[in-house]
Amino acid sequence: MIRRIVGKTLGLLGYTIQYGCIAHCAFEYIGEVVICSGPSMEPTIRNYDVLLCDNLSRHFFSIHKGDIIVAKSPDKPSVNICKRVIGLEGDKVCMSSPSALLKRHTYVPKGHVWLEGDNLDNSTDSRSYGPVPYALIRGRICLRVWPLESFGPLKESPNGRIQDNWP
């Protein structure tokens, strides 16, 4: 009797560990579902949209300019941020807000990316904390799942902040 209970408990424990590990691998290497809150990506992503995030492209270094990504916040590593990639390493980016008269430009250093929210007036991003190391990127947002009426891929940047490589 006791033997059967112990056996069942061990079996259950084994299954829990097994499925936990499979879940970890799936979330870490394939993709996950994220809920985005906060105003920084409006109007592209509204508060509490449910998004599908693909974690595979970061391992293959296939993050491009214009992609929306989920990354660890550089000053609070347990918090995730959702921003748009404006510049990759070596690109020239504009540091100041679009309304500023004097534009200041900078180059993104090696191994870093420049992130900005689409809501430029209400976003804490690379303009305040500087370029972000590539390794902090967790994944790329590829699809909106909820609300259902706007299901599908996300829109391009509305601000035109992404510049082509300067000669």
Partner: peptide, 13 residues
């Protein structure tokens, strides 16, 4: 399918 996820998770965590 048991061994690979368990190993990867162990190495990661």
């Amino acid at each position: 399918f048991v061994a690979v996820p368990v190993t990867v998770t162990f190495l990661d965590r």
